[in-house]
Simulated scan of single mutants.
Amino acid sequence: MVSLPKPTNPSLVVNEKHSIFMQDAPIVEPGANKVLVHVRACGICGSDVHFWKMGQIGELVVEGNCILGHEACGDVISVGENVTKVKVGDRVAVEPQLPCGKCYLCMDGNYNLCKEVEFSSVYPHNGLMQRYKVHDERFVHKIPDKMTYAQGALVEPVSVAYHGVERSQLTLGKAAMVAGAGPIGLCTLALAKASGATPLLITDISSKRLEFAKKLIPEVTTYQIDTKKSNWENAQEIRKLFGPTEYEQPPCVLECTGVESSIITGGFVTRRGGTLTVLGVGRGDINNFPFMHLSLAEIDVKFINRYHDSWPACINLIANKVINVDSLVTHRFPLEQAVQAMEVSSDPSNGNIKVMIED
């Protein structure tokens, strides 16, 4: 009698010493209301690189071993008691958070703001850059057969952009600017186009990323930030591209980098009475914030924290080709080469947009 090999669960781990390494994680059986997912695709996010290189994002600190990854899609291979939402064999996109479900924020529908949320890949909660992961059935979402696993994984960054567009003042037929042509900026640009905002403009310091944005949305105007100019000077050059009058300036600016200079420039670009929405994650403090300029112009400044109630909508957007995200995946690695994948993702000189780990 031939015994079958014991299944292994390779995972990518980061620790408090800024090391990343592969480690075989335990395979956990799903308890009540839980499902076991075989992760088939997991994208690398800038926050994964940030946890590795910097060891923290704001108040979120890596204090020990933690498996990275929160952009995932896979197959349900086992279910616990009382699971009714999905069954074994379903293909699912994973919403990587588990709020308490009891606080006033959860009860009000703003569960992304729950202080007790367990978010995958934020220490001490292990993420999805592993072969097998148990997750709550409420936060796995079936994807149609016409969607690929990679598309299912991309629902997560699209959800970030979706929540940003929800909170912004983006309006049909009115101008909008997106700052940053990384994965979140490109997803935001695609959603802004789908939402009917026009004209559109996107900024970045990289000419290659702006060229990529132009291929994704051909009608977008691009502006390469001149690092030798002040934030005010760059803003005035951007405003010229929209037109000579205040009315032609964008009432909606979506900042997707979290970089201080980009946020300030976006504030100077925003039309009087408009909204600057910051999607990007940056340093804990910002210096030289143009407080009085924003105040006198009655410019609203908004922020986002991840997302809520976005997976079904974003699955529809991708599956029904309202937005096209396939070209965002520029590099693919098998799970066993996750360390190399992280190294590629951390080096912008190689032209990566989204690095996808597949199993």
Score class of each variant (00 low, 15 high):
P7T: 11
P10Y: 10
N15T: 08
F21G: 05
I27G: 04
V28C: 07
V28W: 08
K34D: 15
V35H: 09
L36D: 00
L36C: 01
A41T: 08
H50D: 07
M54P: 00
I57P: 00
C66P: 01
I67P: 04
L68M: 12
H70T: 14
I77Y: 10
N82Y: 12
K85F: 00
K87M: 05
D90Y: 11
A93W: 03
V94N: 06
P96V: 12
Q97L: 12
C103Y: 12
Y104F: 15
C106N: 08
N112M: 06
C114K: 04
Y123W: 15
H135P: 03
D136I: 04
E137I: 05
E137V: 09
R138I: 01
V140Q: 04
H141K: 07
K142E: 06
K146F: 01
T148R: 04
V155S: 03
E156I: 06
P157S: 07
V160K: 00
R167D: 13
T171P: 03
A175T: 03
A176R: 02
V178I: 14
G180V: 04
G180M: 04
G182P: 01
I184T: 05
I202G: 00
S206I: 01
I217L: 09
T222I: 13
I225E: 11
I225V: 15
K228L: 13
K228N: 15
K229S: 13
S230N: 11
N231L: 00
W232Y: 15
E233F: 11
N234R: 12
N234I: 06
R239N: 11
F242E: 08
V253D: 02
L254H: 03
T265W: 01
L279H: 09
D285M: 14
N287H: 15
F289T: 05
F291K: 12
L294Q: 10
Y307H: 11
S310G: 05
A313Q: 12
L317T: 09
V322S: 10
V322M: 08
I323Y: 02
D326F: 03
S327H: 10
V329Q: 01
P334A: 06
Q337G: 04
S345Y: 11
S346W: 00
